[in-house]
C-alpha cells in the first residue's frame, strides 16, 4: 500500500501512528489483520449475544434458553437466534406466544416458575 492509502486508513490513530509513515504502516497493517480476523469472530460474537438476549427474554417467562430452544426444535419452528432475539426485544407478545408453544411442546418446561416475591422481615415479624 502506498503512503497515501496508509495515511487515509490511519486517520484517528493515536500518537505518531497517524503521522509517521513507518509507524503508521505498521499500525495499519496490524489493524487490517485484526479486521480480517474479527470479521470471522463477529459471527460467533453476535450469536452469543443473541443467545444472551433470548435467555434474558425467556427467563422472564420462567423458561431457560436451552429448554426454550428444545421446545422450538420439537415444534419444528425454525426461527434463528437473530430473529428470536429481535422478537424478544421488540415484539414481546409474539415472543410470549413462542415461549408458550415451547412450554407445551416440552414437558420439562411445564411448570412456569413464577418469580416468588421476596418477603421482607416485616412479614415474618
Amino acid at each position: 500500500m502506498n503512503k497515501k492509502e496508509v495515511f487515509k486508513l490511519a486517520k484517528g490513530f493515536r500518537g505518531r501512528a497517524k503521522n509517521c509513515i513507518r509507524i503508521a504502516r505498521e499500525r495499519v497493517e496490524k489493524a487490517l489483520q485484526y479486521s480480517y480476523r474479527d470479521r470471522r469472530n463477529k459471527k460467533r460474537d453476535m450469536r452469543s449475544l443473541w443467545i444472551e438476549r433470548i435467555n434474558a427474554g425467556t427467563r422472564q417467562h420462567g423458561v431457560n434458553y436451552g429448554n426454550f430452544m428444545h421446545g422450538l426444535m420439537k415444534e419444528n419452528i425454525q426461527l434463528n437466534r437473530k430473529v428470536l432475539s429481535e422478537l424478544s426485544m421488540h415484539e414481546p407478545h409474539s415472543f410470549k406466544a413462542l415461549v408458550d408453544i415451547s412450554r407445551t411442546a416440552f414437558p420439562g418446561n411445564k411448570k412456569p416458575v413464577l418469580a416468588s416475591k421476596k418477603e421482607g422481615l416485616a412479614v415474618v415479624l
Partner: peptide
Amino acid sequence: VLLVGTKTSTYIGKP
C-alpha cells in the same frame, strides 16, 4: 414466511 405478527395475533409457522 416463518412468522407473521399483527397487532392482535401471531401466526407461527412450523416451519
